[in-house]
Design a binder for these strands. Sequence first.
DNA 1: AAATATAATGAACAGTGTTTAGTAAATTAT
DNA 2: ATAATTTACTAAACACTGTTCATTATATTT
Lengths: 191, 191
Amino acid sequence: MRRRILESAKKLFLDLGYEKTSIRGIAEDIEYSPATIYLYFKDKNELLFALHQEAFVEFAKTFVKVAHIADPFERLITLGREYLAFAFANPELYELMFLLTAPMEALEIREDVWEDGRSVYMALEMLIAECQAAGHFKGADVQQLSMMIWATVHGLVTIQLRKRCTMFDENERDSRIQGGLDSLIRMLESY
Amino acid sequence: MRRRILESAKKLFLDLGYEKTSIRGIAEDIEYSPATIYLYFKDKNELLFALHQEAFVEFAKTFVKVAHIADPFERLITLGREYLAFAFANPELYELMFLLTAPMEALEIREDVWEDGRSVYMALEMLIAECQAAGHFKGADVQQLSMMIWATVHGLVTIQLRKRCTMFDENERDSRIQGGLDSLIRMLESY
DNA sequence: AAATATAATGAACAGTGTTTAGTAAATTAT
DNA sequence: ATAATTTACTAAACACTGTTCATTATATTT
């Protein structure tokens, strides 16, 4: 039953977005009463946290996708592109993972560590360390550089998802965002 | 009256955060009925859009604060630091400006251009063009670089505000974020 | 003074997340 | 086989949110 709820929630969330996905909507979709949801999930935040975890499973495939690339720097660049591609192909999943407050509130109540975020971030740090070992980023602090790289791609996605590139014409927004990524790549190349 | 509503809304929003600020709460604070709010604002989104505009007035002081710095590159670096400082000193204002969906929805209904965002972004672009004219960022595309720089600082703020640096110990989060900014500055210095 | 405009409201509507006492069905114990 | 217990589910209600609208009181104009 828990599975059914999650599948319905995911479907509605992807179709309608976060704000339009209600407990009642999910209950109606699975043809149960709203109170039934609470037999399986403590509250809505917990439900969204479960979806957040599932989104990370999907997202992890991005890392798998680039794993075959032998050169660490090439892998990093491709990962950056794949990160943006994933975010724009799955905006709702990206919101669940990195923007919505609900999942992190659920985690905070539990006083649990954010294992999904930690493991993905550590993978990024290790990749950047690998690049450095291969001769890139001379003299850079891996931790700082990792944060900077993540912040940049995350910022690009966020600016787009939360509609903060509307100062540009519609036909120019994508190229502006991609241009930001290109600029990052160029800087990393010349580091 | 419109002023009173805005002041109350701002106060409650800063005190309680976005999710806890309701039309009824504002109405109670000014001792009027909730329906009165709608005599002055079309809906909640419009109210939040008005606050969004006020937040930009505050934010613009960040630019004024660095304007006296003669060297454009120094000005840019200081602006970056002030950007983060502003965001962390005024998280709710930053949310209104750059994260919440409500203000942009109000703008979209109106089919208006995002003048606040545009003017601030253009100021950034001009500052970066000025740096380039002074000899920095050789060969860089100003538009791309501007987007990249904004995305980075915005990403850093967003990671913090939306609690996505909880994979780090609490006593290390600030230094990780600041480290990301330091990394950006270092890269800009060596560009 | 009468007519009109303005400012404000009580009540209600539609919707949201959540809780709880109760019920029906399934399972276990006697 | 019957009684007791457990499990799965729900109808109803609560507290709250954003919003609308017919109505009323007050101010202004004719």
